[in-house]
Simulated scan of single mutants.
Amino acid sequence: MDALLRTIDFALYIFLIILMASVIFSWLYNFNIVNRHSQFVRMIGNFLYQTTEPVLRPIRRILPDTGSIDFSPLVVFLIIYFLQSLIMNARISLLFGG
C-alpha cells in the first residue's frame, strides 16, 4: 500500500512541475519572450496545453470570469497540495500504525 501511495504522490509531483512549466510558458509566450514562430516552441506549448488542459478546463468552468487572469492553476496547486497532505498522513498512519 505504501508503494501505491508513493507512486500517486510522485505522479502528483510530476503533474505539479508540468503545471508550473505551463504557467511560466504561457507568460513567456504572451509577453512575446519566446519565438512564436519556432516549431520547437509550438511543440512545447502543445504538449503543455494537452497535458494540463483536461484538468484546468473543468475548474475554469466553475470559477467566475476574471478577465485576463486565470486562477485555475492556483486552484489545482491547492488541490494537489491537499491530496499530497492526505497521502503523507496515510503513509504515516501505515508506517507507524496509528
Rank of each mutant, 00 (worst) to 15 (best):
M1S: 10
M1D: 05
M1P: 13
D2M: 13
D2R: 12
D2F: 12
D2A: 13
A3E: 14
L4F: 13
L5E: 05
R6F: 15
T7D: 12
D9K: 10
D9S: 12
F10P: 08
F10A: 11
A11T: 07
F15E: 05
I17M: 03
I17K: 02
L19R: 03
L19T: 07
L19D: 01
L19A: 01
M20T: 15
A21E: 06
S22Y: 10
V23Q: 02
I24D: 13
I24F: 02
I24R: 05
W27H: 12
L28F: 10
Y29V: 04
N30H: 13
N30F: 09
N32Y: 01
N32A: 09
N32C: 11
N32M: 10
I33G: 03
I33H: 15
V34N: 10
V34Q: 06
V34F: 08
V34R: 03
N35Q: 05
N35S: 06
R36W: 13
R36F: 04
R36G: 12
S38P: 07
Q39W: 13
F40L: 10
V41D: 00
V41R: 01
R42N: 08
R42Q: 08
M43I: 14
I44E: 04
I44Q: 00
I44F: 03
I44S: 01
G45C: 08
G45Y: 09
G45W: 04
G45V: 01
F47I: 14
F47T: 06
L48A: 09
L48D: 01
Y49D: 08
Y49R: 14
Q50A: 15
Q50C: 13
Q50V: 13
T52P: 00
T52G: 01
P54L: 11
V55G: 02
V55E: 01
V55S: 09
L56I: 01
R57D: 08
R57H: 14
R57Y: 15
R57A: 14
I59D: 00
I59N: 01
R60V: 02
R60N: 04
R61E: 04
R61H: 14
I62P: 00
I62Y: 05
L63K: 05
L63I: 06
P64H: 01
D65W: 15
D65M: 15
T66D: 00
G67Q: 00
S68H: 07
S68N: 12
S68P: 05
I69L: 15
I69F: 11
I69R: 03
I69V: 14
D70C: 10
S72K: 02
S72R: 02
S72N: 03
P73F: 08
V75Q: 01
V75G: 01
V76K: 00
F77L: 03
F77N: 03
F77Y: 15
F77M: 02
L78R: 00
I79G: 15
I79S: 10
I79W: 03
F82D: 06
F82L: 06
Q84R: 15
S85K: 09
S85N: 13
L86I: 08
L86P: 15
L86H: 12
I87K: 07
I87L: 11
M88K: 10
N89F: 12
A90V: 03
I92F: 02
I92Q: 10
S93W: 09
L94C: 07
L95K: 14
L95A: 07
F96G: 03
G97E: 11
G97N: 11
G97Y: 10
G97P: 09
G98V: 11
G98S: 07
